[in-house]
């Protein structure tokens, strides 16, 4: 079974013994032992979502890495966050998913308005099954628990991922006014309600709606 561990906070080390992981194409920085690489495009369980969704026009591809030894992954000096799934479903921004065990299923989920506000399209990547996944974030992610008594509001640009049974909806944050009293735009947050965990990064992607 593939073993995920951190080499420092920005490098993912995966020990492989003739098993496989799926990782973002080009994220391998070094390896020991013997590895084979295979490009995965289009096919498979919802991987087409991963490939085509990005509004930036840059298509994201996924590779399968298989072999014996240790493979090191990193992505533009981003922090790595390990997530262990025991049957639940992880929702994650496609650009934040670095690597998953091959046993985990990846797919896409319609998220509606939230995605639109982020300029990230209308879909979020989902990861399901039992095993480990590695997420990237700009700065180490803070993991925040949501309970029915304590809903959470998040800047859309700082949202990375969530698990659990959560409802999300848009909420208006602030009305910008100039000193003359004229409205100068409005900011939005995502409000999470229910039971679950939300991963938030200490940084904000450029968004249309955020900016508090």
């Amino acid at each position: 079974m593939a073993l995920f561990r951190l080499q420092g906070s920005r490098v993912l080390a995966v020990d492989l013994t003739d098993d496989a992981v799926k990782a973002r194409n080009g994220s391998m920085v070094a390896y020991t032992g013997k590895m084979t690489f295979k490009r995965l495009t289009g096919g498979g369980e919802g991987l087409r979502g991963l490939v085509t969704r990005r509004v930036t026009g840059e298509s994201m591809t996924v590779m399968e890495v298989k072999g014996f030894g240790t493979c090191f992954f990193a992505e533009s000096a981003a922090e790595i966050n390990l997530v262990r799934l025991d049957g639940e479903k992880l929702y994650v921004e496609a650009s934040n998913l670095l690597c998953t065990e091959a046993t985990l299923r990846t797919g896409t989920s319609f998220t509606g308005l939230r995605g639109a506000s982020e300029g990230h399209g209308l879909f979020t990547t989902t990861v399901e099954g039992s095993g480990q996944a590695a997420l990237t974030s700009a700065g180490p992610a803070v993991v925040l628990r949501v309970t029915p008594q304590t809903p959470l509001s998040v800047d859309p640009g700082a949202y990375v991922a969530h698990t659990g049974n959560l409802r999300q909806h848009f909420q208006s944050g602030v009305n910008w006014r100039t000193f003359a009293g004229e409205a100068s735009g409005e900011a939005f947050q995502i409000r999470f309600e229910g039971d679950g965990l939300v991963y938030v990064q200490p940084s904000e992607r450029v968004t249309v709606g955020g900016q508090i």
Binding site: G8, R10, V11, M28, A30, Y31, T32, M35, S76, A77
Partner: peptide, 19 residues
């Protein structure tokens, strides 16, 4: 280095491949 460096030991038994 961009994002910090980590050291990988190289031994006659274990070569290292680097991007």
């Amino acid at each position: 280095a961009h994002g910090g460096v980590f050291e990988l030991p190289v031994t006659p038994q274990a070569a290292v491949h680097v991007d």
